[in-house]
Lab assay of single mutants.
Amino acid sequence: MSGIALSRLAQERKAWRKDHPFGFVAVPTKNPDGTMNLMNWECAIPGKKGTPWEGGLFKLRMLFKDDYPSSPPKCKFEPPLFHPNVYPSGTVCLSILEEDKDWRPAITIKQILLGIQELLNEPNIQDPAQAEAYTIYCQNRVEYEKRVRAQAKKFAPS
Rank of each mutant, 00 (worst) to 15 (best):
E132V: 08
E118Y: 12
V86H: 09
P28C: 01
T51L: 00
C138N: 15
D127H: 03
E98T: 08
E145F: 12
H83S: 02
F64A: 03
V142L: 12
G3V: 10
M36W: 00
L120W: 06
E42G: 11
A15I: 10
K110I: 07
Y87Q: 05
D127W: 00
F155Q: 14
K154L: 12
L113Q: 06
W103P: 00
I112C: 11
G56R: 01
A152T: 08
E78K: 15
Q151N: 07
T108N: 14
A15M: 06
C93K: 02
P46H: 07
E99F: 09
A150K: 11
E98I: 15
P157Q: 14
E98H: 15
L94H: 00
E145H: 02
L63P: 05
H83M: 02
K101S: 13
A133V: 06
G115H: 00
P79S: 14
I4T: 10
E145N: 15
E143I: 12
N40K: 11
K153A: 15
L60S: 06
I96W: 03
L94E: 06
N37W: 09
A129F: 00
K30Q: 07
K146T: 13
P28F: 06
E118T: 09
T108R: 15
I45K: 01
N124C: 12
S70D: 05
A26G: 09
W53S: 00
Q111E: 12
L94M: 04
A129P: 03
K110E: 06
A156R: 13
E122K: 10
P21Y: 04
C93V: 09
E143S: 13
I116F: 07
K101L: 13
R8T: 08
A129W: 00
E42L: 05
D33Y: 03
L60E: 03
E42K: 12
A156S: 10
D102G: 14
M62L: 08
N121P: 13
G50C: 09
K59I: 09
P80M: 14
R61N: 14
Y134I: 07
P79R: 15
V86P: 01
E42V: 12
K146G: 12
C75T: 11
P79A: 15
F82A: 03
E99Q: 09
A106I: 06
L9Q: 03
V27E: 04
F82L: 07
L38D: 00
N37G: 12
R17N: 01
M62S: 04
S7K: 07
Y137V: 00
D19V: 06
P32I: 13
M39R: 08
P73G: 00
H83I: 03
L94Q: 03
K146P: 00
D127F: 00
E145S: 06
A156F: 11
N40W: 05
E118A: 09
D127L: 00
K14P: 00
F82H: 02
N121C: 12
V92A: 10
R149A: 06
A10P: 04
C43V: 15
L60C: 14
G47H: 07
P73Q: 03
S2F: 14
A15S: 13
V86Y: 05
D66A: 11
C43Y: 05
R104T: 08
D100W: 05
G23M: 02
E143M: 12
F64R: 01
L57Y: 07
G50K: 14
A131I: 04
K14Y: 06
R13D: 03
L6N: 13
Y137C: 03
M36I: 07
Q117D: 08
I45E: 02
N40H: 14
K153N: 14
V27W: 06
F58A: 06
Q151P: 01
N31S: 08
V142R: 14
I96M: 08
W53T: 00
F24I: 06
E118N: 14
I4K: 06
F58P: 06
F58M: 07
N85C: 04
R61F: 11
E12F: 02
E42R: 10
D66P: 12
R8G: 01
K76Y: 15
E54G: 08
E143K: 10
W16G: 02
A5L: 09
T51V: 01
V27C: 14
E132N: 08
L114P: 14
W53E: 04
Q111M: 13
F58C: 05
I109W: 08
K146Y: 12
D127P: 00
F22M: 01
A26T: 00
P79F: 12
A15V: 11
G55M: 13
P69K: 06
V148Q: 01
M39G: 09
S70W: 09
G3T: 08
C93D: 07
W41I: 04
E132R: 08
N121W: 09
N124A: 08
L97E: 05
R61H: 10
V92S: 09
G90T: 04
K76G: 13
K49P: 05
M36R: 10
A44R: 01
L119W: 10
G3W: 12
V148P: 05
P52G: 14
W53Q: 02
E132G: 08
K65L: 14
A129I: 01
A152I: 04
Y137M: 11
S158I: 12
P80S: 13
K49Y: 09
I96S: 02
R61S: 12
K74L: 15
P28T: 00
C138T: 15
N40A: 15
C93W: 00
R8E: 14
P28V: 06
V27T: 03
E132C: 09
H20R: 07
R104D: 06
R8S: 01
I45M: 13
N140P: 11
L113A: 15
M36F: 06
R17S: 05
V92W: 04
Y137P: 00
P52T: 13
S95G: 01
L94I: 05
I45T: 10
F155T: 05
D33I: 03
P28W: 00
G90V: 00
A15R: 11
R141L: 10
L38M: 06
E42Y: 12
G56M: 07
I45H: 01
W41M: 07
L63H: 12
R13N: 01
S158Q: 12
G50W: 05
W53Y: 05
T108G: 10
A10H: 05
I96R: 09
R13P: 02
S7N: 12
P88E: 15
Y144R: 02
N40C: 05
K146F: 08
K18V: 06
W16L: 05
C43I: 01
A150D: 12
V25G: 06
V25F: 11
P73E: 02
Q139M: 12
Y144M: 00
P123A: 06
E78W: 11
E143P: 06
A10C: 00
